[in-house]
Nucleic acid binder design. Sequence first.
DNA 1: ACTTATTACGCCGGTCGTAACTATG
DNA 2: CATAGTTACGACCGGCGTAATAAGT
Lengths: 306, 306
Amino acid sequence: MHLDPRRLAALRAVADAGGVLAAAKVLHLTPSAVSQHLARLEAETGVTLLDRSRADGRRAVGLTPAGRLLAEHAGRVAVVLAEAERDLAELTGQVTGRVVVAAFPTAMEHLVGPAAAAVHAGSPHVRVSVREFDPEPALAALRAGGVDLVITETYPDARPPGLGGTWLLDDGFRVVTPPDWGSGVEGALTRPWVSGSPGSAARVALDRLAARYDVVLRREHECLEFPAALALVSAGLAAAVVPGLAVPAELPAGVRVLEASALGARRIGVLHRAGRHEPNPAARQVLDAITARAARVTAGSGQRAR
Amino acid sequence: MHLDPRRLAALRAVADAGGVLAAAKVLHLTPSAVSQHLARLEAETGVTLLDRSRADGRRAVGLTPAGRLLAEHAGRVAVVLAEAERDLAELTGQVTGRVVVAAFPTAMEHLVGPAAAAVHAGSPHVRVSVREFDPEPALAALRAGGVDLVITETYPDARPPGLGGTWLLDDGFRVVTPPDWGSGVEGALTRPWVSGSPGSAARVALDRLAARYDVVLRREHECLEFPAALALVSAGLAAAVVPGLAVPAELPAGVRVLEASALGARRIGVLHRAGRHEPNPAARQVLDAITARAARVTAGSGQRAR
DNA sequence: ACTTATTACGCCGGTCGTAACTATG
DNA sequence: CATAGTTACGACCGGCGTAATAAGT
């Protein structure tokens, strides 16, 4: 008769939390799953572990002496496991592994690139591979395992099942125009515009702009990437809506940046598979580095905005 | 990053046994499974655990320092688990559970009945239910979980997949005749016989008898159970082939028992589901009691045969 | 060629969640 | 009727084995 550590953990949770429902909360499971673990543990050991007689006014189940004994041992197992984990982490920052990150160009420049450099400095055995991806294939690749982290410019409120993630920053949109196109955004409304790639957050923002002023814009150009759009602006050909991160720290000649808070922002976040064993340490390091980098970027852009 | 105890066990086995193949043998797994456990453990921890450079003439893989560290902790986990098991067994012979045993009448009388009594004496919380079953439905019920142990009179050489079992005893066949039917088996060949139930080992033995003497027997009667067959013999109506265990210790009047070693024996054994957690302790107790009982029966019949 | 280990792939069983049910205050 | 727990059932995932592959002696 082999004791299954996972079932023991369930028993311990019940002992600690004082009930099946409470244990389920702790373990991030449903009461059903916990109940089944306990039932099987009793069947496998051939010992009654739970006291189901709720005679003395208790609301939740109690443990029999044998149950308490096993729960105690379960605690020991958990301790040993935690020690192993700690010792391993202590022995070596030698975290190994390749982490594949899907990102769009602006994120590569401001987030992934610097984060990868930071990780590489601290953990030389972690290799970061960056791949440019369209949003939909990126999620598919994430689930399939070909990609470990996805930087998205449309971070969802409710995360997809099986995935976890972190919000990183809101990247506010700006209107950029040639400098001599009249005052403010209004002065550019009748001029040519650069549209973003279909489905992109920038394209949606441009739509919002048109709706806000109730005009139909002349979208004479379409650029997939922001540097190209800026180049058109710089050449005096068009105005464009671009996110703040796409605007270089030192403005190119012939480009004027206008605040347009009503345009909103793209919500940048990072997604990863969620599971008992994921994200793994290498991915976790990269993720943390990206998060840290996002915080710095937020601070920096805050200064620039004022 | 949560360490999975099962993977740790695999790592420990590799460390102890000195190689993936050796570990697989110890764990009753294929090398493939072990290799996959190790690969995943490395991915999940982000640490290289195996030294795959076989540069210095080693045949099998070695462990990195981190691997040895983890293997050591894995050993401690195993120790704690074993302690828990021991303590639990010590705290209580309070093994609980209903064990359903499928058997045929002779086995019920000589094996299951006494074994159940013995178990009940030592472990009052174990309830043994005995059910008579035809062989084929018994196996189906065993797999379905409706039955925990099956006593079979045709114990297979190669056990069915998913099942385990133990050989119990060989129950040699006898020829029983009325006392005044001439000398030996030959004297009965031209007389009427009782045939066993179709498919039963006794029927097969009777066929063997006919083939041995190259005669066609007059099978005028058919009895499903041996007491009925013996009653016919006792009444002077027929001869019969019955297993030794079906012959009462004190012979009924009008029954003569003849040795007929060439008839062979039925191989009696017990089958159960095999798995990480099966048979469970209650079933194991019953199984052990049955095995012990079989040994006593063998000894007893040995005396009686002489 | 033989041994050791890893990878590809399909199957099976285990585990989980949803939902219905029981029991108890 | 509200709360605690169990049971039935279906879906999904993880682990295992078979077989093919790699690499080294």
